[in-house]
Design a protein around this nucleic acid. Sequence first.
RNA 1: GGACAGGUGGCUGAGCGGAUGAAGGCGCUCGACUCGAAAUCGAGAAUGGGGACAAAACCCCAUCGCGGGUUCGAAUCCCGCCCUGUCCGCCA
Length: 421
Amino acid sequence: MLDINLIRHNLLETKRKLSSRAKGLAPLLDEVYALDSKKRNLQTEIEKWRALRNKQSKAIGLKKLQGEKVEEEFGALKEIGSTIEEKEKELANLEIQLNSLLLSLPNLPHESVPCGGTEANQVVRTWGEPPQPNFPLKTHWELGKALGILDLERSAKLSGSGFSLFLGKGAKLQRALIDFMLEMHTQNHGYKEVWPPYLVREACMMGTGHLPKFANDMYSINNDGLYLIPTGEVPLTNLHREEILSESSLPLRYVAYTPCFRLEAGSAGKDTRGILRLHQFDKVELVQITKPEDSYGALEEMVQHAEKVLQALNLCYRVVLLASEDMGFGAAKCYDIEVWAAGIQSWLEISSVSNLENFQARRMNLRYKSSSGKNILCHTLNGSGTALPRLVAAILENNQKEDGRVLIPEKIRAYFGEEYL
RNA sequence: GGACAGGUGGCUGAGCGGAUGAAGGCGCUCGACUCGAAAUCGAGAAUGGGGACAAAACCCCAUCGCGGGUUCGAAUCCCGCCCUGUCCGCCA
């Protein structure tokens, strides 16, 4: 959520920044501005009436205590009461309009973010070399099927398209990769391991910004109003919703393995082969909660934490700084990490690391008490460290041998136990 | 899922229709005493918002789990919901 004070005092600047994300957003800010001033006028008026009522009610109480008659004063006060009630309804209405508008606006891009669409994305660095063996390369779904570790026919039988089913060594590989990544982030990068719920309340989804705008992308439980998490970011970031943290506890670093559930309503027909786009997939997620002045340092750090995973697995990747129009809803700045998949000859987005600044913190009222005694909104960051299906796809396709076997990266053999799939 | 008991400031805990934004205690901050500390004494200290202002002081409003209702007036009475605890049931 944007800071209403920013819109009040720097309307033009805010409009300019927001416009770089998508066309048509600037007029909404005019609307916010108008609603807000209307709201404040009405609020001031109501408060004057309330002050009057409080004063007179108190006077009645005093009189009554002294045994004086007070009944004749009730009429006038009752009238004030109904005036207030009427205006309060009007105010509540304004507030709902204003709030739903504010909740639907994306975050402002950081000044270092390039303006434009995907064509303006910048490759920041590339690591490793795409493998170029001298035999025809198979895709991960061909390899998975041939090795008997990935059965997409049967996952469709169970759940329809957009699900995966790993068997035997394929299943074990999932477990090994999860374990490997959790160990790395907890032991080397200072994250605290968390095993959170995968169903959360509506308030959590509001807090991270997945609601109200993206209800159509999520699975919900109509029995009790809970939502299946689309990413581990949701439970991790919401851990401290509505809290005032102590300054010394920051930064907080959390890592969790979770499954992720996405309806993918808007992506019908995209990435239909293999396991590149699923309704349910697994991910190791990193989250940091920091002081405002520390968040951009933390962002660079987190990208490197995710990179370490790919480096350890010896997978070629590149880091991309996303342009303003390509970033997610709440991000002020975002890096994607794309891993090379040799079989399908493509870069796969395997991690997305974002600084949300105080966008989520404002929604979830997440603050810390500074040494001066002030309560200050925290900054929140999240990033995948990393997503599993695309990691598996990359390992399969990049490490395949001519005879169809797949070499297990050395660093996870301790977790996996064998040299080949 | 059922029954009962609860939800009040950083914590504990009183208040159960009016002068209470909230007693007492603990903790915290500042000051006095002290060579220093402890003890003692004094003072201060919630959050959000609006107004005014260069800014602060200041004025006002809201907030006692959340949302409604009754009332001139609600932490207090009524209704609904959420959460916590205990017991019972069910269950991995």
